[in-house]
Simulated scan of single mutants.
Amino acid sequence: MKIYTRTGDSGKTSLFSGERLKKNTIRVEAYGTVDELCSFVGVIEAVLPQNGSRDILSRNLRSIQRDLFAIGAILATSPESGDIHLLQNVEKARIEFLEKEIDAMQRDLDPLHAFILPGGHESAAWAQVVRAICRRAERTIITCAESEGPDNLEEIMRYINRLSDYFFVLARYLNKCEGIADYTWHEE
C-alpha cells in the first residue's frame, strides 16, 4: 500500500465519514491540532527521566495518546454523519483519571505562589510545550463547536481543558523529580 494517495493535492481532505473538506476548515484544524498534540505527548514519553516514576508516567502518556486518537476520530467525523453515533465520546472516567493524576503529583509539589516559566529538565520543558498546544487545541475545538454546533464536543472540551492542567502539573513534577526548582517569572 502506498502512503501517498494524491487525493489531497488540491487542498482538500476526507473526513472519516467521507465528506471532502478544504484542509483549512476549522474541523480539520481541530483534529490536526489534536494530532500535533498527540505527537508531542510522544516526545515527552521519549525524554522522560530514568527514575522510579518513569513506568507509570509512560503508561499514563500512552493512555492519553489513545484518548487523543479517539478525540481525533470524533473531530474527523462530520456531525451530520450517521457514523458519529458509532464513535465513543470521552468518558467522564477519563477526565476523573486526569484529575486523580494531577492530585497525586501535586501532593509532592510545593504550593505555587507565582507564575512559573517553562524550562528545567528537557521532559518538563516539553510538557510545557504540550500544555500550550493543548490550550490551542481547546480554542480550536471551541471554535469548531460554535461554528458547527456543539454535538458531542462538550466532554472533549472538558477533557482537553483538564489535560492542559495535567501537563502543567506534570512539568512541575518532572522538574521536582530531577531536583530542579520552579523558575518563577519574578526571579532574576
Rank of each mutant, 00 (worst) to 15 (best):
I3G: 07
I3W: 11
Y4R: 11
Y4M: 06
D9P: 12
T13I: 04
S14Y: 10
S14E: 12
L15D: 06
K23C: 13
T25F: 04
E29K: 14
E29Y: 14
E36K: 06
L37V: 07
I44M: 03
V47K: 02
L57S: 06
S58Y: 00
S58G: 06
R59A: 14
S63W: 02
D67R: 07
L68I: 02
F69P: 00
F69A: 02
A70R: 15
A70N: 15
L75A: 09
S78Q: 12
P79E: 09
E80Y: 12
L87Q: 09
Q88D: 15
N89M: 03
V90H: 08
E91F: 08
K92C: 01
R94H: 13
F97T: 07
E99I: 10
K100G: 13
E101A: 09
I102S: 02
Q106S: 14
R107E: 15
D110M: 13
D110F: 07
P111C: 07
A114N: 14
A114P: 01
F115E: 02
F115G: 06
P118W: 01
P118G: 05
P118V: 02
G120N: 07
A127H: 04
Q128G: 08
Q128D: 14
A132M: 08
R136H: 12
R136S: 12
A137N: 11
T140H: 13
I142W: 12
T143S: 14
T143H: 12
A145W: 03
N152I: 06
M157A: 08
M157R: 15
R158A: 11
R158L: 13
I160G: 09
N161E: 03
D165C: 03
Y166F: 08
F167L: 03
F168I: 00
V169R: 00
V169A: 01
R172H: 06
N175Y: 07
K176T: 00
G179F: 10
D182N: 09
D182R: 04
T184G: 05
W185H: 04
E187K: 13
